[in-house]
Design a binder for these strands. Structure first.
Lengths: 212, 212
DNA sequence: TCACTAAGTGCAACGGTTTCACTTTTAAAG
DNA sequence: CTTTAAAAGTGAAACCGTTGCACTTAGTGA
């Protein structure tokens, strides 16, 4: 649920006036055109002007709705942050905060194997496009402050406790370290294990002096 | 020593032929012009064409020497990675790997207070320019693989051990979590403390149910 | 001396993004 | 029901980083 799925409809909001409805429609038309073209031909091979044409709006209008090209792919779900904070606040009794964040990461940030085809295509689009990968990561990182505060609150620590910020930041970075590993889900788990228990030197006793 | 200081000269290299010397000179001319203009008027208010003009080369030539605008500010020191790996491999006996990386981060990535004025200006240029901040961070992150391998080697673990990758990645990210804290050096230290000892729930016993 | 190649040139283009002056639509106040 | 002011949209031109292309220049090594 990271982004906008084809034809996904926000269950949120009462469409107040005709104005806002039209605005939303325009926005949707742009997003749909963009996603369709991206999936057809690849992110880098579709230009802004072409998307605008397809959605029958001017590029000016397009940029009034989406600040940058990458944003065309993602819904600005406000509840993304909400879910993240809830993962911490409403974790089962006895579960540690890192464990809760690990679960959240596995659920919402690692492409589950064997899902809907459109879902898969969507994820592949993102994962094969560096610009999009970076954009998603940056999106998540924007929640660092809020997450850090939630953690601090849970622990009765000052809002700006550096340890909480560190945990928040690392937790949000964790899915990134998995990239390139054969088993990404295990890699993420191990990353959170590091956050939970710290770095434990391997039992293998080594004489310090193995300078290459 | 993160980047190129004004008039800094690499102690490396024997200038073989006239050709390479001229090439290096051109490169230096471009870099000098760029840095001067950036410091004078700010990174975003200086265009590529202007820099090329100032260095008396074509923009084509400029881009033959520097792949992107941000690179104009940084020397591609190969020994940056070497120092990083050495920090792990040649750490004093008894020092943990996270501790060694913490020391390295404090020494090479946190602007020391009260340094040379030009140095300070240089750091401020970077820290006040988002594009440059991101570029530096990306530069460091490019060493993740090498650092992970060095750590694994030190511990007698397989080269692609996910835990080692995680530690490497987090260590390189650590300086970033400090941003925005009043005492960045302490924040970094705390981040590494988290990596070293793991997340320890605060002693304050809390009843789970403080939903906001 | 003669090719070979790396370095540099000038210009035009591309693609994302912004600016500007302008028209149309809709909400709301009189 | 008008008037009005804000919001949404338009069209075209420009900006800026970056790339491609066809070309000249100048060291290099045989």
């Amino acid at each position: 649920m990271i982004g906008r799925m084809p034809e996904s409809q926000s269950p949120t909001a009462a469409p107040t006036g005709r104005r806002e409805r039209k605005k939303a429609a325009t926005r949707q038309a742009i997003a749909d055109a963009a996603l369709r073209l991206f999936l057809e031909r690849g992110y880098d091979d579709v230009g802004i002007r072409e998307i605008a044409d397809e959605a029958d709006v001017s590029t000016t209008t397009l940029f009034k709705h989406f600040p940058v090209k990458e944003a065309l792919v993602f819904d600005e779900e406000a509840d993304q942050e909400a879910r993240l904070l809830a993962a911490v606040r409403e974790r089962p009794a006895g579960q540690s905060i890192p464990a809760a964040l690990c679960e959240h990461a596995l659920r919402y940030r690692m492409a589950a194997t064997g899902t809907d085809a459109r879902f898969t295509a969507f994820f592949e689009l993102i994962n094969t496009t560096p610009a999009l990968r970076d954009y998603v990561q940056a999106m998540w990182l924007r929640h660092t402050g809020a997450l850090a505060r939630a953690i601090a609150q849970e622990c009765g620590l000052p809002e700006d406790d550096p340890g909480c910020t560190a945990l928040a930041h690392f937790a949000l970075e964790a899915p990134r370290v998995a990239r390139g590993h054969d088993d990404p889900r295990q890699a993420v788990t191990r990353a959170f294990d590091l956050l939970e228990h710290g770095w434990r030197p391997t039992p293998s006793k080594r004489t310090r002096s193995s300078g290459r």
